[in-house]
Design a protein around this nucleic acid. Sequence first.
DNA 1: ACCTATTTGTCCGTATGTATG
DNA 2: CCATACATACGGACAAATAGG
Lengths: 122, 122
Amino acid sequence: MLIRLTPNENMPLHEQIAHAVRDGILNGSVADGERLPSAKALGESLGVSLHTVLRAYQALRDAGLIDLRRGRGAVVTALSEPSRAKATRILDEAVCHLNELGLPPETVLALFRSRLERAQIS
Amino acid sequence: MLIRLTPNENMPLHEQIAHAVRDGILNGSVADGERLPSAKALGESLGVSLHTVLRAYQALRDAGLIDLRRGRGAVVTALSEPSRAKATRILDEAVCHLNELGLPPETVLALFRSRLERAQIS
DNA sequence: ACCTATTTGTCCGTATGTATG
DNA sequence: CCATACATACGGACAAATAGG
């Protein structure tokens, strides 16, 4: 996967990296189950610090796109396609209703996270 | 707000800080609109680095609990109660349907985030 | 069972940049 | 202009988990 960084753009490096990898995963150019290069290796090849790559990887983990573990590296998470499609329909409808409330997206996201956790427990 | 750090617990310092502040916000001991101490000041009073506090603050921002901006500091986010209640109902129903799909919560969260962003653009 | 190399996790210090008041 | 405060990025150090020999 090719990643090109634009040094002077206002988008931070870690975000540029995260977006590039995310796009690679979503458009299929990086296969499910594939192992991403180590943070050190990718950092060296991009001319950035290990920390910067790690920050990008950790964001992708928070987004559920990769499985990131010590000693193991970053592995692309496999998604179940039919369930994914159904989930998308349900979520799109909810988002449509939510948009009318005028709440800031971060708030909606925080609420969703809390409801999701709550459902997980019970 | 009193924060006590336990150095040897397996919970990272930034997470301990985030949880403490989050609890303070949710149980009302920190009022809406109140300004949290600067990362530098809190770091010095806790004996940790500015970065560690900033990381905690940024997590709270991602969770929608505070408004964190350059030059301004961290201000506790006030939530509009009626809209919040409606959003909670909508989300609970969606989560109920989503639970039947058996997708991992991180995947559901990632999907929700992507649908939310998509709705934001259009 | 042991050792070693790899890889991420956390934390610190420092430097520079940018937005706010 | 200036002080404050967050944002990003780097490098270094050590810890902890994993994998392979």
